[in-house]
Write a protein that binds this DNA or RNA. Sequence first.
DNA 1: ATCCGGTCTA
DNA 2: TAGACCGGAT
Length: 338
Amino acid sequence: MNHFSEKLLTWYDIHQRQLPWRADPHPYYILVSEFMLQQTRMETVLPYYHRFIEALPTIEQLASASEEQLLKLWEGLGYYRRVKNLHQTAQLIVAEHGGIVPSDPEVLKRFPGIGDYVAGAIASTAYQVKVSAIDGNVLRILSRLYCNEDDLSRAGPKRDLQSKLLALLPTERVGDFNQALMELGALVCLPNARPLCETCPVSADCCAYQTADPLDFPRKKDRRKVPVHLKTVLVVRSEEAVLVEPFGPGLLEGLASFPMKEGHLSPADIKALYPEAIISSLGPARHVFSHLKWDMIGYQVLLAEPEADWTPLSRLDRLSFPTALAVYRSSLEGSVSP
DNA sequence: ATCCGGTCTA
DNA sequence: TAGACCGGAT
Ligand code: SF4
């Protein structure tokens, strides 16, 4: 074991958070947790993980689960493509690998939703294969350890840092080493605040701490400002039921939605669409995605009689709505708005 | 209001 | 390789 990994693992043994997939690192648990942890914080993932594993304790049960159940288990977690990919990956593993999660990173990367990072994380954490697992935390630490000023969204600089990391990998406890690096990024080498270098186990090896300012690393890329889309959300309902339609291809694909019109429509516009209805405002709401914003207003459109294809309010909780529509979804809790 | 983050697609 | 994809923390 080299000096760097020795210090890191000693720190990890003391400071690691107790996590369900660490207590029992069964490959299926690692698979599920790594899909959830893509783009998503640990604290957010935990309750979802518990519910998911309780509902689907084995990869065979996941493989044969319904789309509706899976979407419900993922509701609010975001990046809903992940759960479709996880489902397909589980089905492929059951059909082609006897339900055993493969240990070869190159094999893992052929499954949908598994890229460089997740392949490395599963192989090293579940099987101790000696590969790196570079997520955003690790990339940030590496940029600081080596005072790397390159644009890390590009492949070349990323490869440079990966090769430096490979030289640090221990021959034993590779999975713990990768987990320890990510844990250090989450608990000490912080992304949005000054890192806690005084308590960092590898500060003696850190270029940024010893010779520069850690806050200057990694280099930030200037964020493109995102376009704003005006939307009007129509909660078309009776006392007993509501009109629900799924999002089409692309953003929030497959999740439940209400009819949405481009632009901000006036009550008179709504009245023209639904002459028989009682129109009332549900107020404004905004939602920010990475690449666009929705600036929404909502109306309740109350009709005396529901159409046959509307969803009874009693069955609404089976559907999965995105967080973007939380305000309008919650208007259906309790009684009809005034 | 701004920052953060893996994979896939074009 | 830039842009699409989501929600939460600060
Ligand atoms: S010394 Fe500071 S900047 Fe360097 S790795 Fe540790 S926490 Fe990060």
